[in-house]
Amino acid sequence: MTHTALSAPAAELHRPYEGLPPTATADFNRDGFVHLSGVLSPETLAAHEPTITSEVIRLNTQDTPLTERDTYGKAFLQVCNLWRQNEKVRELVFSQRLAKIASELLGVHAVRLYHDQALYKEPSGGITPWHADQYYWPLSSDRCVTAWIPLQETPLAMGPLAFARGSHQFSYGRDLPISDESEARLKETLAAQHFEDVIEPFALGDVSFHRGWTFHHAGPNRGTEPRRVMTVIYMDADARVAEPTNDNQVADRGWMPGTAIGQVPDTPLNPVLHDSGWPA
């Protein structure tokens, strides 16, 4: 039997990340997010960005001119579950390196995939309004985390993701979808409650991880190139499907096909991506 050697980028995606600070899990629990440096090498990003970008272009269904869209439509082009379309994208989404970080930050023995999502903010694209992702997720647990993976250096002018530090413990606004209303109400209330708005540039290779209830937003893209970002959403492997509390959660049950309320979504679309009990 012959074994094909993994390319350097593919091998990196399955090696543990050595840069996780000793305080990372505690920081994540306190702040609701963590911004890590050097998670992926420039070579790994260069090996995957062209494929992800070409798939976004191929699969994007948004054809309304930017100036004629609503606030949500101006925020980004959004394409989900790209891993099912392309083996190169699957290589990144199924990365043991990323999934292990997610598992350690959440303090769970294993994480499974909820879904992936490409978020491309076009040049002159607008703000991403304040919101919390977990509003959309019909899950019994808040042990969920999104990895936000910029595919290029992302200075402030391109609209990097920004977080309200500690806001995952603030229950106000959890009934708000991404909208002009969420932007207005959360911007005012989070400021009034003195939550720090952490806005930082992302160097090439930086990746952030944020909890499902962490309120976050992004500025407009004032650059001349798209802000190209891939995201992967992980959930505690033992989490169960919950009764939806809004229409968006009803729709989101489609990411876990065939799973009844109260069941673990052990489906082909929701594989376990890291388990601390697996052999090394």
Rank of each mutant, 00 (worst) to 15 (best):
F215T: 11
P279F: 06
A24V: 01
H168R: 05
R228E: 13
K100G: 00
I101S: 11
G19L: 07
R112C: 14
A5K: 15
D116E: 05
G107P: 07
A184C: 01
D180L: 10
A218V: 04
L20Y: 03
R112E: 09
E12Q: 08
D31P: 01
I57D: 15
E91C: 06
R143G: 00
P257L: 11
E225I: 05
A157V: 05
G125A: 10
A110T: 09
P244A: 11
P22Y: 02
T25I: 01
Q249S: 09
A5V: 13
L106D: 06
V56A: 06
A75F: 07
P265N: 10
L82S: 04
G32M: 06
P155N: 11
I127K: 13
P265K: 09
G166A: 03
V93E: 10
F170C: 12
P138I: 07
P226T: 10
T44Q: 08
P16D: 15
E12G: 06
A8Q: 14
T23Y: 01
R84I: 00
G212W: 04
A47K: 03
T231N: 10
T4P: 00
L40I: 05
L273I: 08
E181P: 01
S37K: 15
D252N: 15
G173F: 01
D238Y: 00
P220L: 01
A164E: 05
A132M: 12
T71K: 04
Q85T: 14
E91P: 02
Y17C: 01
A26S: 12
L151M: 15
H217Y: 14
Q152C: 04
P50N: 07
N81R: 14
R228D: 03
A110L: 05
P220M: 06
G125E: 10
S276T: 08
V229F: 07
P42I: 09
S7R: 02
W255S: 12
L82M: 09
P21C: 07
A10N: 10
H35P: 00
D238C: 01
E225A: 14
T245A: 08
F33P: 09
C80S: 14
R227N: 11
G19P: 09
Y136T: 10
A203S: 14
S171N: 11
R222C: 07
G126E: 14
Q193I: 00
T146G: 10
D180Y: 01
N86P: 02
T25Q: 15
A99I: 06
A132E: 15
Q117A: 04
M256C: 14
E68I: 00
P201I: 07
N81H: 06
I178A: 14
A11C: 03
D206K: 02
P279I: 04
Q96A: 13
L106N: 06
D206A: 11
G159S: 07
Y234F: 15
S124L: 10
F28W: 05
R58Y: 03
T245G: 11
G258S: 04
F215I: 11
R228F: 01
P271G: 08
E55F: 00
P244I: 07
E68L: 13
A102V: 08
D63W: 05
L204S: 04
Q117S: 11
L139I: 15
P201A: 09
V89E: 01
F202M: 14
V272L: 06
A218H: 05
P226C: 07
R211N: 03
E153K: 12
R174G: 13
T245L: 11
A10M: 07
G19H: 09
K100E: 15
I57L: 14
R84C: 01
E200T: 10
H217D: 03
